[in-house]
Design a protein around this nucleic acid. Structure first.
Length: 501
RNA sequence: GUCCCCAUCGUCUAGAGGCCUAGGACACUGCCUUUUCAAGGCAGUAACCAGGGUUCGAAUCCCUGUGGGGACGCCA
């Protein structure tokens, strides 16, 4: 909160997800803060795939992370580092630590370790490894050829502390810290180990991550000290990066956001039709603020972002606010771009419509109006669908007010007949009234005129028309705007259907 | 249980000792327009976890308590 960035160091940050699940929305927020920080300081944003868990890592998840980041517009600026390709290196570093007495071979079985852990829990202590093998000079008898893990030889006394850029000084008594495993008995390295090796090699200047990593930091501090010799000789990278631990994103139940208490998959938001900039705007306000400002363009986020204004406590993921922000960004979006997204992501919404109709300029005109009222791209597509259909569509007219009043019903029909006639006259051989120079205000005048002439209320008149022309009782586009845009032939067919209702 | 972190309206937040009878936003409620719908405008309800200090003065600093969350893996 109170620490600023030293100006001469090159800022290099990374997002380091493990491909064991779809890109989590919390990961997107972490990425966003890293990305904004890099942009703001003229640094670089990098990506590292932490696929050391060979059991659970899957290619499809890596693909998902990559495609989601691309969708969000936050792509890495240097080649992606895959940890699974570097096992040999990690092993060598670990062996080196063993030979220097910074780590040791542990011959305990998982069951043995688990047993002591449970025992300590019962005694009211923090469950830790009993350090059985810490001072061994040779393998225990009978286990000479047994597989062994490699553990860090973490100091037993003193304290380990670091200065968090968001929270200030955080320190841990060393006696509470474990001799954590750095290489599993199957030879695969663990997270806390490789993260340090890679951050050193990638010359990461600032580690910005979720605060669930606070407790890992002292372990990593130990490793930074032990692996100091790995730091690049050019000295342009800090020996130990600065840390900034971001508050968690919480579900409605105030617990860490997970599948159980909210939608966590980034893809789901894309499929629902959120604009990426809307999602990002919502996410940036979860834990960060700039005075009273709520709406930010990507450029504004970059210009305004800073770690000083990052919040310390967790933030509940609030879907209502997301929806509001989505609507605000929708209003500002370029309609041509919206059409493109509709075509690539929401083609399925157009069953029964010949897609070439999407290319007609009238589509853009329709989108311009629709986007003012809806929040999601999918909604734009759904609103567009019936409008682009040729001719009549099935409608449910049972809810119409005129069902209760035969007199009005007849008057409205008379009015519609007048409208059809008038429309033809105004069309002057064009496809649509708009092409003939008829606009919103003209339609307003025409409809009001007809209502006056036939002695009906505007609301009674527009209700049935809206239903038959849009196929829906309510629509995201006003009738006054819609009538000029659509092909008059389609409107006429639909109004004829209305007359028969 | 142990360690770490946190604590302002229901939610996101502003707040860096006096500008705070605590501001904005979402949501909610009401009103206006009711001569088009899911628009727009206006207004309102609503919070400094508790107790002790420090200070002329505390939402803001300190301590304690309470509450919440996170971490305690040969997951990341």
């Amino acid at each position: 909160m109170r620490y600023s960035v030293s100006s001469n160091a090159q800022v290099r940050v990374r997002f380091a997800p493990s491909p064991t699940g779809w890109l989590h929305i919390g990961g997107v927020r972490t990425t966003l803060f890293n990305y904004l920080f890099a942009r703001k300081h003229g640094g670089k944003f990098l990506l590292r795939i932490e696929d050391t868990d060979t059991e659970r890592s899957e290619q499809k998840y890596t693909d998902d992370i990559l495609s989601s980041l691309k969708w969000l517009g936050m792509e890495p600026e240097e080649p992606i580092l895959y940890q699974s390709k570097r096992f040999d290196l990690y092993k060598k570093v670990a062996d080196d630590m063993v030979s220097k007495g910074q780590a040791y071979r542990c011959y305990c079985t998982e069951a043995e370790v688990e047993a002591t852990r449970e025992q300590m829990m019962k005694e009211g202590k923090k469950p830790m490894y009993a350090r059985t093998c810490r001072n061994l000079t040779a393998p225990p008898t009978g286990r000479e050829h047994a597989p062994f893990a490699i553990r860090s030889k973490f100091p037993l006394t003193g304290t380990t502390s670091f200065k968090d850029m968001i929270r200030g000084e955080i320190s841990f008594p060393n006696e509470d810290l474990d001799d954590f495993v750095i290489i599993r008995s199957n030879g695969v390295p663990t997270y806390n180990f490789v993260v340090v090796i890679d951050d050193i090699e990638m010359k990461i200047s600032h580690v910005i991550r979720g605060d669930d990593h606070i407790n890992n930091t002292p372990k990593q501090m130990y490793l930074y000290a032990a692996l100091n010799h790995l730091a690049p000789p050019d000295g342009d990278a800090p020996k130990v990066p600065m840390f900034a631990h971001l508050p968690m994103i919480l579900g409605q139940d105030k617990k860490k956001l997970s599948k159980r208490n909210g939608e966590t998959s980034t893809n789901a938001y894309r499929e629902q039709g959120f604009l990426p900039e809307a999602l990002l705007n919502f996410l940036v306000r979860l834990g960060w603020s700039h005075g009273d400002q709520e709406l930010f363009s990507m450029q504004e986020m970059i210009d305004l972002f800073n770690l000083e204004n990052v919040q310390v406590s967790g933030a509940v993921f609030n879907t209502e606010k997301l929806m509001w922000i989505a609507g605000e960004h929708m209003k500002k979006a370029d309609p041509t771009r919206l059409l493109k997204i509709i075509q690539t992501d929401f083609g399925k919404c157009f069953s029964g419509v010949s897609l070439p109709r999407l290319k007609e300029p009238l589509t853009i005109e329709l989108i311009k109006h629709i986007q003012q009222k809806v929040k999601l791209v999918k909604e734009v597509a759904e609103q567009l669908h019936p409008l682009l259909e040729k001719g009549v569509m099935p409608v449910d007219s049972s809810g119409l007010k005129w069902n209760k009043d035969a007199d009005t019903k007849q008057k409205v029909k008379n009015g519609i007949e007048s409208l059809i006639e008038l429309g033809r006259k105004k069309l002057l051989g064009n496809n649509s009234l708009a092409e003939a120079g008829v606009g919103h205000a003209d339609i307003d005048g025409i409809l009001r005129g007809i209502c006056e002439q036939h002695g009906i209320k505007l609301g009674d008149f527009t209700g049935p028309m809206r239903l038959f022309v849009t196929g829906q009782a309510t629509s995201a586009i006003g009738l006054f705007d819609l009538l000029p845009i659509l092909h008059w032939s389609d409107i006429e067919e639909r109004l004829q259907a209305c007359l028969k209702a």
